[in-house]
């Protein structure tokens, strides 16, 4: 995958990048933010990033505890170490934010993203798309005689690589969820 020289994640294309992407010492961090699932909480988090000029490379949010009214927001962001620290402190200041975890600092994390890709083509291209999908362990979730829709799960880099390979084979549409991440347990081995 490294041979493709793809940028990590989707940062280079994000519309939410307000800071100089070439500044020295930039680091990518994955933050997990546990919040009260109340109206406006996502707007508070996003407003913080845009208002203070921080980057959002990827953001996912969903309720994780229905009875406890809690949601988990996973944010991938880039910045200098000082900016990353500031982002964490500013997030912690938001009243409905309960916990802010920097998964990049707290130890290795499992990071996964899901994507749906529609690839239209016939003949050899169609066969090749299916063959590559098999290698990447992507599933066909919808198909017509002219197209496949693949579902792929993996790191953002894996999805970038798969999408890049599908482009010449007729990639017509792509939907990505953004990163969901959990810290690895102490006992777990790489898997």
């Amino acid at each position: 995958m490294s041979a493709l020289r793809l940028k990590k994640g989707t940062s280079s294309k994000s519309a939410y990048n307000l800071r100089d992407p070439h500044a020295e010492g930039l680091e990518s961090h994955t933050l997990a933010v546990i919040v009260d699932n109340e109206a406006g909480v996502l707007a508070r988090v996003i407003g913080l990033f845009s208002g203070r000029g921080y980057n959002i490379d990827s953001l996912t949010v969903a309720e994780i505890d229905h009875l406890g009214h809690q949601s988990r927001i996973t944010i991938v962001t880039t910045g200098t170490p000082a900016v990353i620290e500031q982002i964490k402190a500013q997030l912690g200041r938001i009243v409905p934010v309960h916990e802010v975890h920097d998964l990049t600092v707290e130890g290795r994390a499992v990071e996964r993203e899901l994507a749906l890709l529609k690839v239209a083509g016939t003949g050899e291209k169609r066969v090749e798309a299916l063959r590559l999908a098999d290698i990447f362990r992507a599933n066909v979730v919808d198909s017509t005689l002219e197209s496949f829709t693949f579902e792929i799960t993996g790191t953002p880099e894996k999805i970038d690589a798969f999408a890049e390979l599908m482009r010449p084979l007729g990639l017509s549409e792509i939907a990505r969820t953004g990163v969901a991440a959990l810290p690895r347990s102490d006992m777990s081995t790489d898997g």
């Binding site: 500031q86 402190a89 500013q90 912690g92 200041r93």
Partner: peptide, 8 residues
């Protein structure tokens, strides 16, 4: 009292 004021 505000951690975000420190090292800002």
């Amino acid at each position: 009292i505000d951690p975000s004021s420190i090292n800002k």
